[in-house]
Amino acid sequence: MPMGAITFDISLAFYFCAMLFALLDLSRSTKILPRLMLMSAYLGFGFHTIYIFYSGFSAGHVPFVNPHQATSFFAWCMFLLFFVLEYRYKLGLLGSFITPFAFAFMFISFLLPAGMSPLPPILRSQWLGVHTIFAFLANAAFAMAAGVGVMYLVQEHYVKSKNLGGLFARLPSLHVLDEINYRLITIGFPMFTVAIISGSIWADDAWGSYISWEPRQVWAIISWLIFGIVLHARFLAGWRGRRAALLTILGFLTIIGAFAGLALLHKGQHVFL
């Protein structure tokens, strides 16, 4: 499908430009770079959206059923959330910390085979859409939370070390970064919960048990627990700021670990990812 491939490539190119502008933005403060970055990201996102719809229509089901599609859709979710945050909070330098992540997923997707094999019978379920969309959106929210967590750690390092050069003046305040980290997790966590519940109902349909303790499921539960702890500890013990940021990053790493390690190895019953 040449039409699909072209829109994907164009989108990848725009995302690359967005990342380039975002990284340049770190080295010098200008008005033009953030605008160029956003513009490129919007364009990339537009073409990316066309690509995803096109794939979906031509396949007749949600197009997130192989690693190529999954990583591509994950990048799409991250850009979507990035635009929302950018619009809502206008955080300085957010793009510089998010676009490289998102681009990385897009690039991995580019490297993976895009070929569309017929949908395996096990995936033919009404749960496919619910499970995958919630899982991806939740993971994207966690990814953003981790990105914001990194920003928090960088900014806190400036304040604690009393060296206020570098990006100190341009990074958002600690309060805002912590607050956004918290909000992203409070959005991501219920969605992640829905994904896990729908997944286990689906598993019960397909395999006759809600959970079969295969690696993908175990990792998902570990990630779910970590983000549960982030929320719970903040509420009860006031684990905020640095601790919340570190835990968020740890949680996101478990997600990435599961995503990359297991999906690419093609192991377990959780066939496509």
Partner: peptide, 9 residues
């Protein structure tokens, strides 16, 4: 300036 970078508002 520092207070702003910690508390924002």
């Amino acid at each position: 300036q520092l207070a702003r970078k910690i508390f924002n508002d």
